[in-house]
Design a protein around this nucleic acid. Sequence first.
DNA 1: TCAAGATTGATGCAATTGCATTAACTTGTT
DNA 2: AACAAGTTAATGCAATTGCATCAATCTTGA
Lengths: 159, 159
Amino acid sequence: MKRRPSPEATAAWTRLTRVQTRVLGAVEQDLKKAGFPPLAWYDALHELSRAPGGELRPVELERQMLIPQYSTSRLIDRLVEEGLAVRRECQRDKRGQYVEITEAGRELQKNMWSAYGAAIERHIGSKLTDADAATLRDLLDRLGCSCDGAGAPDTVSAR
Amino acid sequence: MKRRPSPEATAAWTRLTRVQTRVLGAVEQDLKKAGFPPLAWYDALHELSRAPGGELRPVELERQMLIPQYSTSRLIDRLVEEGLAVRRECQRDKRGQYVEITEAGRELQKNMWSAYGAAIERHIGSKLTDADAATLRDLLDRLGCSCDGAGAPDTVSAR
DNA sequence: TCAAGATTGATGCAATTGCATTAACTTGTT
DNA sequence: AACAAGTTAATGCAATTGCATCAATCTTGA
């Protein structure tokens, strides 16, 4: 094993990280300047809000967002601290719990989307035709992302 | 302003972060398991090694790698601590300095590339044809990455 | 049923990051 | 020359992350 990557593959990888880093940084800046919390909060709230009953087990959230377990645990701490979600006990598994989004949480998620969506439009939408964006999505999907569907306010799950 | 992004743009952005996060994580894991330092060290050593004289001003490294100033400062601290680079004074600007890669630094960079390149091949090269990789690169470039050429051991500069 | 093993979630601790500020020097203007 | 403004690099401190581990509970299979 240990084949060398082609220059094309290497260049694609280079761009992938550079562009992602740049755009993510810009989006985070936009959110912060608009007085919003980090993008990770949006992702969590989005996952919760679209889950049936507005609640998920921490372990499910963890899988959706592709972040480590301790990270999920602390993210939930912060959401709860801010009144955006509540921890509820789980009767069918006494180890676990449910995390349920609050009305304030739904509110914030909606408000954040207005800034977030604008940032996506500014950094992606305005630079590619829809056809090109679809091509980009398809190529990226082939790199093994096991994402589900693509409703409008889509999820992102950054690191 | 504040137009909404198309579903295509949103989906592309979703994949962009997901795939980048996943692949970056996998690459970092590979490096760590092979006993190597983080990818950022590779990037810095790579930039230094290809600079004329094997040296750069911290501020130049910072621009190449697209990382914050304090981050550069501390990264250099660590490289120097490990004997991979040395700080040299800069005579034409007494505020500044030069950072020069050492023989050990060049050595490490070369060794890391063998693991790094293999990871790129595994996660990108083996999943796309060269033509598709080139298309991906072009699409990403249109998102405003101002990267320079694409020599084989290319740079990456993660956050 | 009971023990061994897996799963769930939290947390102490060290390392890293982000922010703001500082000190030292250079440049441009008058 | 002299001063204001800009640039370069470092650092104290708080917040966050990553790692390892733990306690509690569930599951499996003899």
